[in-house]
Deep mutational scan, measured.
Amino acid sequence: MKVIFLKDVKGKGKKGEIKNVADGYARNFLFKQGLAIEATPANLKALE
């Protein structure tokens, strides 16, 4: 799953980066902790 990092995550990505991560890791950790959001077209446009 492609995500946009909202904060730096050690070993995974830095704020503003778009990367592929495992679906479960994204849903169960990154999204719940507020560290990333899904890289949807609307979210990508908002990032610009």
Rank of each mutant, 00 (worst) to 15 (best):
D8H: 08
A39E: 02
Y25K: 07
L35A: 06
A46W: 15
L47G: 05
A22L: 11
Y25V: 08
A36S: 01
G24V: 12
D8T: 11
D8V: 02
M1R: 07
R27H: 11
I18M: 06
V9P: 00
A22Q: 14
K14V: 10
V21K: 00
K12D: 07
N43M: 08
L35T: 03
A26R: 02
F5A: 00
F29W: 13
V21W: 02
R27I: 15
A26G: 05
Y25H: 06
E17P: 00
Q33D: 07
G11P: 03
T40M: 04
G16N: 07
K15S: 09
A26P: 01
V3M: 03
K10D: 14
D23R: 13
F5K: 00
K45R: 13
I18V: 14
K45S: 12
M1P: 05
K32V: 14
E17T: 06
I4T: 01
K2A: 10
T40V: 04
N43W: 05
K14E: 08
A26Y: 13
K2I: 13
N43S: 07
D8W: 07
K15N: 05
Y25I: 08
L6S: 02
K45V: 11
N20Q: 14
K15P: 05
T40A: 04
A39V: 05
A36M: 01
N20Y: 15
G34M: 08
K10N: 12
I18A: 03
A36I: 07
T40F: 05
K10F: 13
D23Y: 13
V9I: 08
G13M: 04
Q33S: 09
K12G: 13
N28D: 15
K32L: 14
L6T: 07
A36Q: 00
T40E: 03
G34Y: 07
L35G: 02
E17R: 02
N43P: 02
E48R: 11
R27N: 10
N43R: 07
G16H: 09
A26D: 09
G13S: 04
G34N: 11
N20R: 14
E38K: 08
V21F: 07
K45N: 10
E38V: 06
F29L: 10
T40I: 05
D8E: 08
N43H: 08
A42D: 14
K32T: 13
I4L: 09
D8R: 04
K2D: 10
Y25P: 06
K19P: 00
K2R: 14
G11T: 06
K10G: 09
L6W: 01
T40S: 10
K15G: 04
I18N: 01
L44N: 04
I37A: 07
F31M: 08
I37P: 00
E17F: 03
L6A: 02
G16V: 01
G34K: 09
